[in-house]
Nucleic acid binder design. Sequence first.
DNA 1: CACCACCCCTGGACGC
DNA 2: TGCGTCCAGGGGTGGT
Length: 288
Amino acid sequence: MPELPELEHTRLSLLPIRNKTISSVSIRRADVCEAFSDSGSPLPISPAHLLQNARITSLIRRGKQIALIAADGRTLCIQLGMSGRVLLRPATKTKPQDLPAHTHILWHLADNSSFLFTDPRRFGGLSAYPSQNSLLSLRWSKLGPDALTIRPADLAAACADSHRAIKALLLDQSALAGVGNIYADESLFAARIHPHTLAHKLTPRQLEALANSIRTILARAIQSGGSTLRNYTNAAGTKGQAQLTHAVYARSGQPCTICHRPLKSSRLAQRSTTFCPHCQPLRPHPAP
DNA sequence: CACCACCCCTGGACGC
DNA sequence: TGCGTCCAGGGGTGGT
């Protein structure tokens, strides 16, 4: 279930394609792709949009999106959605029958290795832009600050006038980019904040605890290779370990790791939400 | 405007 | 074993 740590790990494991040239692109399902002009108008997709004959110079990430930047400026943004993956294939594996199911796009590199985009549920997709600047202005400008480096002041600004539940705000990529359902629950638990707390009611102390929890938990999850739930792996096919450290996510009814009372589940912002009613009270404990 | 429900989609878990 | 049903949720969109 790709969130920021899984995307960052995918980005890191794709770094071997830097300075390599894409010799050809096989578009097996064009409808997972979209392309835009500098002014943002949609264009019919072509192999050139998917970086055919481009040399990759950098891979960048913002929130849950990564982008491949070519030497000539062409930029390809990748969103994994729920089930998307980008996988590297060594030069020894070239048979079509070796391809994972639901491989929608296949990039062939000049050195005979390749990489591919696979996404059974097709919630993910690829978005092509003529330049890095157009990606930033047309797409990433809509994202909030990156969760991996979120500062208490940035979080406070996002929460200041919001009457939504804090968990709904955390999931809103235009408020904060990178947190999904897993790490929203984990961060709120670590900061001991009830997920239904209205964002503008959070105290400065809570906002600081939450920002710190978000950064710490995301960084730790990157360290352990991301959470492998269902079939997530990074581009090298390696599974993550972060799911082993989840304190609340998918642990409804099981004992809280702090107070040992059973964790509770509810539905918030259309998402299943698990928390400890005792350790995460709706109001912070009054200062003594 | 801010917020929320719905919808897209498929694989896996579960019950019978 | 196999089939039907439900659930998971990121993000766009249209409604309130």
